[in-house]
Design a protein around this nucleic acid. Structure first.
Lengths: 146, 146
DNA sequence: TCCGATTAGTTGTTTATGCAACTAAAAGAA
DNA sequence: TTCTTTTAGTTGCATAAACAACTAATCGGA
């Protein structure tokens, strides 16, 4: 049995796969004429799941920090995909509302992302995938991502 | 048996773990008084393994594109950790040489990174890890990372 | 030998991330 | 009520990544 070295694990987890996925998704969006980045899609998909949430909740869902989310929302607003709406009951909060353009991107982009994920998972059995996912979740837990 | 959804896999692979690792390593370096980023460490560690290689080889080893490597080398040169040396036998090539400062960072930083990886892998058995690594390598293969 | 193709590297622009410092609003304690 | 603390969000600055367009050097075929 071959020992797995720290360096191999570091290499895999520290960005090679995520950069590859982000590149692939970005390219596929572009080919479909969809003008959003992978990160912007991540924000939108939080909102498709639950609309009108505050930025801090998006931070928690995506594990991004507040400045990152501020600027992603800035860019999504410029593209008329979301709108910041002040919460009247707590004026510290921005409620992020999907626009109709934002809503309309859901179906097509989700198909694109699912296609890429399924391609990435080609020839990997459900058992292997469940076990690998379990390991990755425990790594996230150990890194305090819970 | 619970089905693993594309979205769960996307979430895990698209950046949460890599951002967490990069943040953790950066913070640990900073606490040890080591002034380099995680990405710069990745470049240095290619050179610790094999010194005096060209930038294109670093691109291949790290799966980063040429502009990314150009700028990482720029920053490493500013910190006097590497030096660009023109290859006399092929003047298109920059041979990247470690400086003595660059060499001196190897031991301490490698300990830091290994410690973080081992912490991330806490309570994960060798069997599980080997299986998860195999899945991740096949994902990388499917994403044409080689 | 010469010219087009390939290879190595750089630069410009946009987007994203990490961290620190900041403002504004709300919550809590004396 | 007032003052301190906490929470939500923004801004500034440095680093990194994706992509396209570019220069310079080498290679290879006619």
């Amino acid at each position: 049995m071959v020992k797995v070295t720290e360096r191999e694990i570091f290499d895999i987890l520290s960005g090679k796969i995520s950069r590859a996925i982000n590149r692939t998704v970005l390219k596929a969006f572009s080919q479909e004429g969809i003008d959003i980045t992978t990160e912007q899609w991540t924000i939108l998909s939080c909102l498709w799941n639950k609309d009108k949430i505050i930025q801090q909740e998006i931070c928690d869902l995506t594990q991004k920090d507040k400045p990152s989310v501020t600027r992603l929302i800035d860019n999504l607003e410029k593209k008329d995909l979301v709108r910041r709406v002040l919460d009247p009951s707590d004026r510290r909060n921005n409620l992020i509302h999907l626009t109709s353009r934002g809503i309309s991107l859901k179906q097509k982009t989700t198909e694109v992302v699912n296609g890429i994920v399924n391609h990435a998972l080609k020839n990997i059995s459900d058992d292997e995938l469940i076990s690998a996912k379990d390991v990755l979740l425990r790594i996230m837990y150990n890194l305090n991502l819970y």
